[in-house]
């Protein structure tokens, strides 16, 4: 079975089982939206090897566009989300077109700068509601038929769309397109010397990544009924980087694990309330960034490849050790030749 198919089935299985385990559909829906956002980021940065610090722009704009379309125009959700994807792709094309010529830190800075421009656009534009954001966005009727107001129904819709989108991203990585992307990450001049137009490939990957991020933003806005400035803020870009690093950048399931972990942690800490450490009373719900920052530091220091990356590495090492005697024998026979 292909990895893409396996991941698709795993998400559906876990996703269907989770509500029965007592987890709230709304929480699960949020996890899924952020998992997709993390996967979109990973699709570009994890596979092409260029760090984007601008993905919040796509996520945020996707949220605003879908929210506005649902609330003001009252169109059906699939159209609203489709529109969000289209806007995300166009913005990705423009941003990517400008940034892709740069390497390393310059690429990161260009994406950050452009994303900040989008943020200020969202702050000033007439349809975004400035500091208030778009509130009470209706979920609408899917294809004009299925009312999504029930959390469980909404969850089902998000589960299928997210699983499908993640399948698509992974499937692309298994196709020749994905191979070329990995080749470009490994050695761009060599890929060029074999006749690959590296810039177009990178731009295509960026546009795909941006559209999926916008889709995730749209789903988030529709689920929570809210599109607001934090969605487009640069800290959201930082957040998604953190999710991917924690789970395992460049791995297929790492971003999903990382995103779920962070969303769950935020939810847990928000409920935690006041704690007392040596006479100091701390309200943990307002100190979430500090806790997450500490976890991030631990992650960088102790398991740099992320949770999933480390597991894959250890498994490989274990398998290699298990095969070592065989390999040694092979070397012996080679030497005797």
């Amino acid at each position: 079975m292909r990895t893409s198919t396996a991941i698709f089935l795993a998400i559906l299985t876990v996703g269907v089982a989770a509500p029965f385990g007592g987890l709230y559909p709304l929480f699960l829906t949020k996890c899924l939206a952020f998992a997709l956002f993390a996967c979109s980021f990973n699709f570009f940065t994890g596979n092409v090897g260029l760090l984007s610090i601008g993905h919040a722009a796509f996520f945020g704009l996707g949220a605003y566009v879908a929210g506005h379309a649902l609330k003001v125009w009252g169109i059906t959700p699939e159209l609203a989300l489709g529109l969000a994807v289209l806007v995300g792709a166009s913005l990705g094309f423009v941003m990517g077109g400008m940034a892709i010529r740069r390497q390393g830190i310059y690429f990161a800075m260009v994406t950050l700068a452009l994303a900040q421009m989008v943020y200020f656009f969202c702050l000033q534009a007439p349809f975004t509601g400035a500091e208030d954001g778009l509130q009470r966005i209706p979920r609408g009727r899917l294809f004009g038929l299925l009312l999504l107001d029930n959390d469980l129904v909404m969850y089902g819709f998000v589960l299928v769309s997210v699983a499908g989108a993640i399948w698509g991203l992974q499937r692309l990585m298994e196709a020749p397109f994905g191979q070329v992307m990995l080749a470009i990450r490994d050695n761009e001049p060599r890929a060029m010397s074999l006749g690959y137009d590296c810039r177009s490939y990178k731009l295509m990957a960026f546009v795909i990544s941006a559209s999926v991020a916008a889709f995730a933003g749209g789903l988030k806005a529709q689920t929570l009924g809210l599109a607001s400035l934090p969605d487009a803020h640069w800290t959201q870009s930082g957040n998604v980087i953190l999710m991917c690093l924690l789970g395992g950048l460049g791995t297929a399931v790492g971003p999903i694990v990382g995103a779920t972990f962070i969303v769950a942690l935020e939810g847990y800490l928000a409920d935690f309330g006041l704690i007392n450490i040596m006479g100091l009373t701390i309200d943990l719900s307002t100190k979430i960034p500090i806790v997450i920052g500490a976890i991030f530091m631990l992650c960088v220091l102790m398991f740099r490849k992320g949770i999933v990356g480390e597991i894959i590495d250890r498994t490989k090492q274990y398998l290699r050790n298990a095969q070592a005697p065989v390999a040694a024998k092979q070397v012996d026979t080679l030497l005797q030749k």
Binding site: A175, V180, L182, A183, R190, S193, L194
Partner: peptide, 28 residues
């Protein structure tokens, strides 16, 4: 200059498939 993280066979495949890539489905 090799693609270090790809298999030896995939290194060659990348060079072989390039002329066919436009004709091949994106997804093949």
């Amino acid at each position: 200059a090799v693609f270090a993280n790809l298999s030896v066979a995939d290194n060659i495949r990348l060079a072989l498939q390039r002329p066919m890539l436009s004709a091949m489905r994106f997804w093949a």
